[in-house]
């Protein structure tokens, strides 16, 4: 096909349709670009920056950048993976990620991405934040110590559930957090339901369904079987 639009991703030809982002085109072609805040079902948020690639020599977020014919994109280079590892370490030090006691372990996108990028330690000095845990809801537990600020819960609640249970607010490292749509700030005082899309969207261990934890034995969990880079074509959550 002579009129097929393509660009180069790490030297490989990737075809795309006009309007597709680099990330969308890569996923369609089964090529993994590390990402945390992007989800195929929702518009790009562009906050985690794990998907940073080099386009014709300049850095850019592949989840927000539209593919252009003939562009040359670097993805899994040592330079970029180094930066991504540093970004992952930033997540691990700003939050509190004690995986052994986290129900999401084995099914967590952050953890799986850190394995993929061979993150051996958090490297920086830990912040050990003290963010709230909300157990008020009968079916859902919220542990914001693990939040990566991807806003997927905000979008899912708004766009799919039509509820606006969550909003991102506050500023900076100390302020930025998910706000819950009730005067008490408690999830129990909202119309959130365990059947909401937002209840299953969180890529990490913040929004957890109660009494479901550790149901899948170690070895059987999503990323025990195959590494995240081999699961490109499967839905992320």
């Amino acid at each position: 096909m002579s009129n097929e639009l393509t660009f180069q991703l790490d030297g490989e030809d990737i075809s795309f349709t006009p309007g597709q982002t680099i990330m969308q085109a890569a996923k369609a072609a089964g090529v993994y670009i590390p990402h945390l805040c992007w989800h195929p079902d929702f518009p790009a948020h562009g906050s985690c920056k794990l998907c940073t690639v080099k386009v014709n020599g300049r850095f850019g977020s592949s989840c927000t950048m539209e593919a252009q014919a003939g562009m040359s994109v670097e993805n899994r280079t040592a330079e970029l993976d180094d930066k991504r590892r540093t970004l992952l370490q930033m997540f691990f030090v700003e939050g509190n990620h004690f995986c052994p006691s986290c129900e999401k372990s084995g099914n967590c996108t952050l953890q799986a991405t850190a394995y993929e990028l061979k993150m051996m330690s958090p490297h920086f000095d830990m912040f050990y934040p003290d963010r709230p845990v909300d157990a008020s809801h009968p079916d859902i537990l919220l542990d914001f110590n693990r939040c990566i600020m991807c806003s997927l819960c905000v979008t899912a609640s708004r766009e799919v559930d039509g509820k606006n249970v969550f909003a991102m607010g506050g500023r900076g490292i100390l302020g930025r957090r998910i706000h819950i749509n009730s005067e008490s700030g408690k999830l129990a005082d909202t119309d959130f339901a365990v059947t909401d899309r937002a209840a299953s969207i969180c890529p990490v261990g913040v929004i957890l369904v109660k009494r479901k934890g550790f149901a899948v034995p170690i070895g059987e969990r999503q990323y025990d079987k195959t590494p995240i880079n081999e699961q490109v074509k499967e839905p992320t959550a």
């Binding site: 691990f92 509190n96 990620h97 004690f98 995986c99 052994p100 006691s101 830990m126 050990y128």
Partner: peptide, 18 residues
């Protein structure tokens, strides 16, 4: 070599840090 979660990020004992 730092071996294990506790050496690497404080692990369970560090859950007292807040």
């Amino acid at each position: 070599v730092a071996v294990g979660a506790c050496a690497i990020n404080g692990g369970l004992p560090a859950q007292r840090n807040h």
